[in-house]
Amino acid sequence: MTDRTSARARRRPQRYLPMQILLGFLVIYFLVPFWWVIVNSSKDSPGLFGGDNTLWFTDKVDYFGNLQELFTYGGGIYGRWILNSTLYALAGGIGATILAVMAGYGFAKYRFAARRFSFAIVLGALMVPATALVIPTFIMFSRLGLTNTIWAVILPSLLNPFGVYLMHVYARDAVPDEILDAARVDGAGEVRTFFQIALPLMRPAVVTVLLLSAVASWNNYFLPLAMLSDNRLFPVTVGLGLWQGVASANNAGGTSLWSLIIMGALVSVIPLIIAFFSLQRYWRGGLSVGGLR
């Protein structure tokens, strides 16, 4: 697809100036919050609250000091939150992707009993708001003694019906039955066929599902907020929410948490931005499929 795009671009380069100017304004709108965070994470709290120019630096630019404060405040809890978020995103993302790839392939390529019915149920599940599940899951987990453990966050995020749906559509379209049959005739087992023939063909969709589920886990707030009470297990979203609450009560004991929250927000968005930019090639290909045709 990238080939086709660039071929098109070569054929008729398009540079409507008014459109470009419009785009310029849009980019400014989408970037202003980032700019504000980048500028204001350099300030201390008098600079923040008393400063006149909110979109520019004050005389005192202290990124290093704020960063150091961020990673040492409360025994370095922030670093722990980032690690937790990473763990939840990786474990939840990879687990959900493995399950979704297998199930999507299964639904697409095998005619098994109750297939249509099960798939319809999975599609129905797309419409169940995930948060409606949190309260009962919490009580179930509390009976099992699983609340306030990492499993309380990881296990529910293994569920990704949309991933199954996406993989189903992709496997259906991108993995021709003929190739599979040919492999079977050559004596390859089902599992080997899956790994050696089907999986490579499904790679763009796999990366997409992986990214989508990792992002979903990384962004999750409601579930860990409900499940965890030990702040050493918090992901960074819940942790910053906690700081927001503590700071709202002016209650950090001489440290103004507001500067830390701004710096923390900045640091927390960096990993995902890097992941997205570096994996661009894969996920853009994956998004264009999946029922979108």
Binding site: G74, F138, I139, S142, G145, T147, N148, A226, S229, D230, N231, R232, L242, G245, V246, S248, A249, N251
Partner: peptide
Amino acid sequence: WTNVGQGGDEYDKFQTAISAGTGA
């Protein structure tokens, strides 16, 4: 010691732990 939040945030956590029967 840990700080799980100020006022209402802490009470929510405590209330949750009470309901769960563990975690307080």
